[in-house]
């Protein structure tokens, strides 16, 4: 399989490492080679957490600038910041619910308007899937299920040869029992949202 390169960007605490983990398990179950890398030194201190996942026949576990086939952003400004990882053929999926950096939150820096951010991303890349994933996570009765909502949307794009069924199984195997039902619900809502 030709390599498919996915970059996930999130803010510490949003749960992107679990998304990466589920994708890795699902790839393994589907017989797809997978190499992943993550930078999470400051995850618990409000910094940016980035995962790179390379599916298919490649050996590298990191992704160079301008070489992501898919960018999955958990926070709109972080998605915008990661545009340097994209090219004109990149498919971008982003949550639209903002989590302003502390500096902007206390009025010492301006958080760009959401519309402007989405317009820029859309104009520069092949396809943009943008929706309020946090709202759907709440709908699934699982505010921490943002990561599963976005995973559902990612699978729906069909960019990665992992079926929804395999992904759901990987969620069952990798996430806590207490959250299983709401995680699957969140996944399904995200899957529908990206139709």
């Amino acid at each position: 399989m030709d390599p498919v390169r996915l970059i996930i960007v999130a803010v510490g605490g949003q749960g992107n490492l679990l998304t990466a983990r589920v994708l890795g398990e699902a790839a393994l179950a589907s017989g797809i080679p997978v190499h992943m890398s993550e930078i999470h030194g400051m995850a618990q201190r409000g910094g940016v957490v980035e995962s790179a996942i390379v599916f298919g026949d490649a050996q590298s576990s990191i992704i160079s600038d301008a070489e992501a086939d898919i960018l999955l952003g958990f926070e709109p400004a972080e998605t915008l910041r990661a545009l340097n990882r994209c090219n004109k053929n990149t498919v971008v999926i982003t949550n639209t619910s903002p989590l302003p950096p502390f500096t902007a939150a206390i009025g010492k820096g301006v958080y760009p308007p959401l519309d402007q951010m989405l317009e820029l991303i859309s104009a520069k890349t092949a396809r943009l899937v943008a929706f309020d994933a946090l709202k759907l996570a709440h709908e699934a009765n699982n505010p921490l299920g943002l990561n599963m909502v976005l995973l559902g949307a990612l699978i729906r794009t069909g960019m990665i040869p992992i079926s929804a069924e395999t992904a759901r199984q990987a969620i069952q195997d990798s996430t806590k029992k207490a959250f299983l039902e709401s995680n699957l619900k969140a996944f399904d809502l995200g899957y529908e949202a990206a139709a």
Partner: peptide, 12 residues
């Protein structure tokens, strides 16, 4: 691209 405010790690 507009200036995106930095997101440095912070004490909890």
């Amino acid at each position: 691209l507009p200036v995106i405010p930095a997101r440095p790690p912070n004490l909890c």
